[in-house]
Design a binder for these strands. Structure first.
Lengths: 263, 263
DNA sequence: CTCGTCTTGTCCATAATATGGACAAGAACG
DNA sequence: CGTTCTTGTCCATATTATGGACAAGACGAG
């Protein structure tokens, strides 16, 4: 019985909740600041709203216990009521359970640091990490680390698995945030295209000096990429030959995880 | 109709974010439903708003990934983006770390099931559980269980440690929700008064048939109760003599935890 | 010290938003 | 095939959230 319907799928069509959406956008920005949080000015920059609006939203969230302010620094961070609400869900998540054996296998096989990263909105979020046996490990990325889709090899891999048009939209939406990571729309789109051709995501110049990362994407049964597995190592550990080996292991385990969440 | 003269210091005074507050209130109600979630009608009942408003809020939260709808049942539950946001915080929390040795000690000493419960708004939330060695254990309450302050012995204990006036306000605010737990304002206030006299919270008739619970409160350095430790056991295991013993252990450990979070 | 340049916080007229009464439609039951 | 549940939608309008302008505090330089 639907007649003339305005595009329901493109962007969020539901009216009458601007404030709620804005509050959540603020919260996601604060989440990217992890424990240390984010100063107000930076939130304003990232979200593109006016100072009074952002200020009011944050302070209401503080009153509600959703946001905390650090006494020392004045920065705003995710409050302790958020994990309290999270307790309503079963832990660990299905993905974590499904990925566990694969991460175990790949970690012992490869020996370098492994990450499991999910897509959440326009961000990547590291949800699991395995440290390998090789004495030099890249540990810069911790569980909970959140970055704009596109700046990490995991983000590039996930974008490569998204329909090209959607990928472009996501990258465009993250444009403002790329500056902080010293990249830009064109670079990211180039990397995404390369990853699509290669079959896996690659970052020759990692977020940390002298490291290199390889990521493969994991799709849900409906064909949308939900996550990525990544190996990070010092660059010399990942020459062309070993890159090939590692990529094959990651591809194998990505398929294995897809099986586990699909069946 | 300008009767906006509500106490400015007691409850949240900040204006201009009604929708955000409402959305969070909805989310807390959904959190009480844990994995199974809550039907829309029940949310409406619990929150006292109109159907269109609640409906709109929930569906916006779904679009944002904060709420999920279960395909089968049609119930609404906390979505997977909530734990994702929670990853921004250090885990486990300071309280959990501080309480750990006490729970360990008390658990081996007592042998019955132990709970650590925090206050969050007008709710109690179970955040840790230890199973004892005695063969019959009360396992009905799981980590993440959320109930109105006042219906569990932990809630009674926390209310007993709050200034009487505040306790009355909280209980009044929870009035509508008490029905579902077969209690009422008068009963709860009576139990709170009794707990204040005794020095610990007590529930002769537990939420589960034939069980009994004892709870002691834990205050933060600024004197406000933040949590409670509870022992639950089949009633026959907690006669007057043993009640005394158990209460003493719980009181001792409550003080110990207060030390740990205070220093 | 005074100015400049950061930052965060507040006021309030008003435009825009969120509200809820009324209605619709589907499901389960007898 | 009505009754009574449930969830979902519309839209005029009054309540709400908005943001321009201003304030105030912190810090450093001259």
């Amino acid at each position: 019985m639907d007649k003339t319907r305005i595009a329901r799928n493109a962007t969020s069509p539901r009216q009458g909740a601007q404030a709620i959406r804005r509050a959540l956008a603020v919260l996601r920005i604060l989440a990217a600041g992890r424990e240390d949080g984010v100063p107000l000015a930076e939130v304003i920059r990232a979200i593109g709203l006016t100072r009074p609006t952002v200020h009011r939203i944050i302070h209401v969230l503080i009153e509600e216990g959703i946001v905390e302010r650090h006494e020392r620094t004045g920065r705003y961070a995710v409050g302790n009521q958020v994990p309290e609400l999270a307790l309503a869900r079963p832990r660990p998540s299905r993905l974590l359970i499904a990925a566990n054996p694969s991460l175990q296998r790949a970690s012992t096989e490869i020996g370098d640091t492994l990450f499991l990263t999910v897509r959440t909105g326009n961000d990547t979020l590291c949800v699991d990490r395995r440290i390998g046996i090789y004495p030099i490990q890249v540990l810069s990325i911790e569980i909970g680390a959140r970055r704009p889709l596109g700046v990490s090899s995991a983000g590039v891999a996930i974008l490569a698995a998204v329909p090209a048009q959607d990928a472009r939209k996501i990258v465009a939406a993250n444009e403002k945030r790329f500056e902080a990571y010293k990249t830009d729309v064109a670079t990211v789109l180039g990397e995404v295209t390369a990853a699509r051709r290669l079959g896996y995501g690659l970052r020759e110049i990692g977020l940390v000096q002298g490291t290199k990362s390889i990521s493969t994407w994991i799709k849900t049964p409906d064909g949308r990429p939900a996550a990525a597995i990544t190996v990070s190592a010092v660059r010399t550990r990942l020459g062309p030959r070993r890159e090939q080996e590692v990529a094959e292991i990651l591809l194998r385990e990505a398929r294995s995880i897809e099986q586990a969440i699909g069946g």
